[in-house]
Amino acid sequence: MRAEEGVTLFSGRLSVSAAQMESLSRALGGTDAESPAAAVVPFFGPTVAGERLVVDGIGLDLSRALLGSQTYKWTRPFRPGEEIEVLVRVERAWEKNGMLFAVVASEFREPSGGLIQLQTTTFIERGEEG
């Protein structure tokens, strides 16, 4: 891992896909297509602009990577079809006991700037064996 604090991994406008929310709802509830949780967590910030966004952005070795923690703070649910501004950046990076840590912060805002959700995700990369 080679995370650099303060580096922006993605900044841009996305659309909240109704199909994606329904897909997540089905994952959570089987046949339940109306899970309100799907309107709160339709995005995993570190993959919001493609699955390699954070993997390549911070040089994560997937065979040694763990997800340590995640925080969601939302001011309201996402709305299907709405346009949102997304910013994903490396908030912190450090090493401890031979393991590497990186906190990736993701902001989701209305085009007017109003905050919808903040996510922080802590990645851990274990040291190499032997």
């Binding site: 509830g29 899970s35 309100p36 309107a39 709160v40 923690s69 925080t71």
Partner: peptide, 21 residues
């Protein structure tokens, strides 16, 4: 985390705002 929210919202309703750690 999503499964926890799914179950919690089904049990007690979905809040407009909130925080999950």
């Amino acid at each position: 985390g999503a499964l926890l929210l799914h179950a919690a919202f089904r049990a007690a309703g979905a809040p407009q705002s909130g925080k999950l750690d």
